[in-house]
Simulated assay, not measured.
Amino acid sequence: MELPDAVRHIVDQASFGVFCMGLSRLTASRPLLGALVERWWDTTDFFHLSAAGEMTMTPFDFSMLTGIRVEGDPIPFDIDMDEWDAAQIYLLGARPPLSRPGFVRYSWFEDHFRIQTPTTCEEVEQYTRGFIMFLLGPTLLIDRVNTVTLYLLSALVDVTWIRRYDWGGAGLTTLYGYMSSSSRRSGHLLGGYWRAWELWVYAYFLRLAPVLDVEMPPIVPYSHRYDVRCERRPRESFLFFRRYFDTIIAAEVFQTLQFI
């Protein structure tokens, strides 16, 4: 979605601008993700590597990868709002069709707002809420049926308060939950969240990262590192990644850290 200038200003102030520009364009490596999933312990939210020990994505890692800080006030979810239909029309300018009670497909927000040009302050705020719902649906707060909860509108009533909430904490928690769900399903891969995990792997395990045509310094968000032309390393198999994670030692990991 190409944002009107007034909307973009609010999105940038809410700290989502850097996140939008840093969404990864890389394609998934399913063997790599499968090898990660089988090493995840859902009781600790850590990967257990045979020789290197335990590792996971920390709040600091998440912030460096995405540009979204893990801090702030808890996100308010008011599931008991009175006159819900009226609130939707007030906050979005329309009543979105529900795919299931309390949820709407995030693609509706793109379809509805793409053809609009906000002119009043009220329309700008409605457009901003719709864009953030569309942004969060397939990224930070993704679910398996491509929907986003309308209760999230509770946090978007006052657009000047959006920056105060802990969006990074919510995203990281969701990421842990999907990895745990995937591990219990014996390798079932986790929707759109492969991007964050794959970037995390590239930061800590440089041997597995794509080769850049032009070397880029570490930047925030880390996914900007791969905006230049890059070439994936030869397509490795699941067995390759399994052996790699079983044999790499801690000293090799810390020699390749990209965030320090």
Rank of each mutant, 00 (worst) to 15 (best):
S63E: 15
P74W: 04
F77M: 14
P59D: 11
P74M: 09
P59H: 06
M81Y: 00
G72A: 09
E83A: 09
D82Y: 04
W84M: 07
P59S: 13
T58L: 15
A86T: 06
F77A: 08
G67N: 13
T56G: 06
V70N: 07
W84S: 05
E71K: 15
L65D: 05
D80T: 14
F62V: 04
T66W: 03
M57R: 03
M64N: 05
S63G: 15
T58Y: 05
E71T: 14
D61F: 01
F62R: 00
E71V: 14
M64R: 06
P74L: 10
D82S: 13
I79K: 03
T66C: 07
I68Q: 03
F77K: 06
F60H: 08
I68M: 11
P74Q: 08
M81G: 04
T66H: 03
M57Y: 01
I79W: 03
T58K: 13
M57T: 08
F60N: 04
F60G: 06
V70C: 14
G67P: 12
D80W: 05
M55W: 05
M55A: 11
D61V: 07
P76I: 12
M55L: 15
P76V: 12
D73R: 15
G72C: 12
F62I: 02
F62N: 02
F62D: 00
L65M: 13
D85F: 00
S63Y: 08
M64C: 13
S63P: 04
G72V: 07
I75P: 00
D73A: 14
D82H: 04
P59V: 06
T66G: 02
F60L: 13
D78R: 11
D82K: 11
D85V: 00
D78G: 05
M57G: 01
S63N: 12
G67F: 10
I79R: 08
I68S: 00
D78M: 12
P74D: 08
D80K: 13
E71Q: 15
D82A: 14
F60S: 11
D82E: 14
W84V: 06
M57Q: 07
R69D: 11
F77W: 05
G67W: 07
E83R: 11
F62G: 00
V70D: 06
G67R: 10
G67E: 10
W84C: 04
